[in-house]
Every structure is written in structure tokens, then in C-alpha cells.
Nucleic acid binder design. Sequence first.
DNA 1: TAGATTGTTAATCGATTAACAATC
DNA 2: TAGATTGTTAATCGATTAACAATC
Lengths: 229, 229
Amino acid sequence: MSTKTDKLRVLKLPTIRRLPLYLDLLEKHFQKGHTTISSSHLARHMNLEQIVVRKDLSITGIAGKPRIGFDIEELIAAVRTFIQWDTSQEAILVGAGHLGSALSRYTGFEKMGFSIPAAFDVDPEILGTTIGSTKVYPMGEMRHMIAENGWQIAILCVPAKVAQSVADQLVAAGITAIWNFVPVQLQVPDHVVVQQENLSSGLAVLRVKQVKNEARKKVTTLKTSEEEE
Amino acid sequence: MSTKTDKLRVLKLPTIRRLPLYLDLLEKHFQKGHTTISSSHLARHMNLEQIVVRKDLSITGIAGKPRIGFDIEELIAAVRTFIQWDTSQEAILVGAGHLGSALSRYTGFEKMGFSIPAAFDVDPEILGTTIGSTKVYPMGEMRHMIAENGWQIAILCVPAKVAQSVADQLVAAGITAIWNFVPVQLQVPDHVVVQQENLSSGLAVLRVKQVKNEARKKVTTLKTSEEEE
DNA sequence: TAGATTGTTAATCGATTAACAATC
DNA sequence: TAGATTGTTAATCGATTAACAATC
């Protein structure tokens, strides 16, 4: 009803997903010595239309200059602020198996203001070890360590069967954001947000795109009769 | 212009992304001994509205029965056909670092009709080793092995700096679908499809959701004056 | 100045949601 | 039969695209 709550409702997910990709290009361009960049330049390198870029960037509130484009430094700062990468955050990893440990070793998180100081697992083999800069603790210590350190974000990489019960423990311990790599739809209370990552969705899209593209090729190259059916 | 090409244009990405998630629930439900399932049941377990489920499932062409729902086996078969999981496909892994090897070890690919018989890398340390059931070969052998085996799909997990040049090699060797985990926008010819996975996009969405949710909580609990601005 | 590029307003498109008749 | 659930048609909503005036 109010303008305030209305603003909160609108998330513009597609734009938010693209912002980190712009950021990456902006930083590369800045490192090459440029200080400004146009929306058409960004569009070209991201296979987008320039109007998409202009609309996306307008969300940051930064104004460009006609004939010149946007100030790169200004834009970088605004994008980073918008997606919260200007404030560093600690996240915990829950489940330090193959995928989990690959994620904790990912070096890209650093520039996203994201670090993973602790991981929790049940496997006695890996307890006490260190993955990159992440130390592995037993699940039993998870609850009090979350409370003590005030951690808000958890990366979930446990087996599917235990995902919901682990999520319940995380919520009970005070976690308010779960980045979920387990293909299970978590049930969480309103004050907790979940970002679901699904490998299977990506693969389904890839396959469907592939067959559609093959079909398209056939149609355009063979120019078969277009009136059948 | 023609009905045929029109059909090809429409991809319904959001629906396709959800289909594997339905499939998972359908299989679980079937294993529990059920033979039918209603759209409201699926909706409840996926945190969706039942109308979304009905619309999504209609893409498969399977008709449900009023009062009863859908035949699970029939629906499973139709979904699997739609997303091409009924025909088994071999994909190659290019770049067998932490993320790449975690992916090749992922056991879920099997039921997606997806296997990864070969990986290619430059690291002499891992050449000749086996990750799960994936054997690691030198990059130099990639081209002729792709041609010999007729592989169509590649999973790209190489360092960002070489991603484009490796993609060029893949395309030259005959690959028509690239599942790209490298945060680089690949330039590929029309006959090649790319499915881009971006960790950074997911993290941006998680963070923005989190702050929006905190703001929402404040608004609803404190009931501050709604007319400011 | 002329022209490239911006920001804004309107139009289109696709996805979601609502309404409701059909049917087992 | 009554009622739950489906499939379809229409309405709404949000995102993309187009058009164009503003400006450096």
C-alpha cells in the first residue's frame, strides 16, 4: 500500500543476477586504464542489448554522461553497494564433501566480500583439517559457534536426506540466509531467505536449448515446407 | 512466420528449470508406493501455487484426471523425455580442478542420463588419474578424442583467462553445447549453445534478498509511519 | 554545431495469477 | 449426486524492447 512497502516488494531478480557480471567487466576495463565506459560497450561484451544495460545500471542511481558514458569507478562502487559486496561477510559451510570443499576453495569469493572461516561436517576423517582457509569442525559445535560469532549466512552442501533437518538446526542457531546447493526445497520461516542453486535445472535448460537449436538449424538450412500442420 | 518456427522460439525457461524438481518429487512419491499425484501436492512440496504446477505440467502433454490427479509413471516418462533425460549422453569435462572434479564426482548425473567418461587438463600431476569414473587426459588429445567419440557436450571449468580460447577449440572440434561454470561470457557461433552458471549471480541474489527481508521485518514489526516521502 | 549516448516514457512480450467451466 | 481437481481462457504483472527527447 505505502510507497515504502511497494519498493521492498520489487526485487528485479534478472537485473540483480547481471550486476556481478557487469562488475567483473567494469573492473577489467578499469584495470586496462579506462575511466569511463558506455552501455553499448558493456552490452557488446555481455551479448546483451544496450537498452538492457542502461535499464540495469539505472537501478544503482548513477547517471552517465551523454557522448561519454559512465564513470567506471563510480559505477563499480554503486554496484558493489547495491549487491552488498562492499561490506564483508562471513559465511559458514555446512557439509564439506566434494562440492562443499570446492566452494570453500573458490578464490573469487574474496572480492565479493565473502569469506568462509568455518565448515561443519560429520566425517571424522576431515574434522580438524583445513580446506583453503576454512577449518572443519564437528556438527555438534555448530550451534554455539554460530551464536558466538554471530554468523548469518550458511552454505548448505549436505546429503539430501539430512538437508531439511540441518536447515532447521541452522535456523534455530540464528542463521538468516541459506545458500542451498542441495536439490531439496527447504521449508524455512519468514525471517530466513533461501537462495536455491540447482545443477539439474541448468542441465535441463542446456539440453532443451541444444535440441531446439538443432531443430532450428534444420528448419533454416533445409527450408522444408513451412505449411505442414 | 510459420507455426513451426514460432514453436521453436518459445523456450519457457522458468518451466524447464522447474521440471527436474518436479521429477525428483515424482520419483520419491512413486517410491513411496503412490501411483497418482495432484498438482496441489506437488505445489505444496515445492512452495509454488498449484496453478503454476498445472501450467508447467501441461507442457508435457500429459492429461490428469479430475479428482485424482496425474499418473506418476506417465508423468515421469513425459518429463524425462521433454528435458532429454531419457536418452543417455556423454559429456566431457574440461578443466579438472576443484570445481571440475567435484562435478565429475557428482552422483546425481547418472539418473539424468548424463555421464562424464573423460576430462582434459594441463596439470601433469593429475594426467592419467581417474576421478570417480572419469579419466583425465592431456588437452592435446582433446580435439581428436572429441571427433572420434562424437562427443557433443562439454562442461567448462578452466581458469577464466583461457576460457574463450578453450571454448574456441571445443567448437572447432565439434562440440555443440557448453555448460560453462567459468564467469566469462563466451562468444560462440550460432550452432553452439551455452548454458552459463554464475556463482556470483546467486550470491548477489542471496544478499539482496537478505537485506530486503530485514527491511521488511522492520517495517512490519515496528509499523513506522508509512507516509514519509 | 552535429552527433553520440544518455534517461524516460510507451509498447510489446512472456510469465504468473485468477476465474470458471468441464469432468470423473 | 456433490465436490475435488483438472484444463482453458482471460487478466494482471513484470521484464524487455522500442521510440524519442535531452544533453554534453
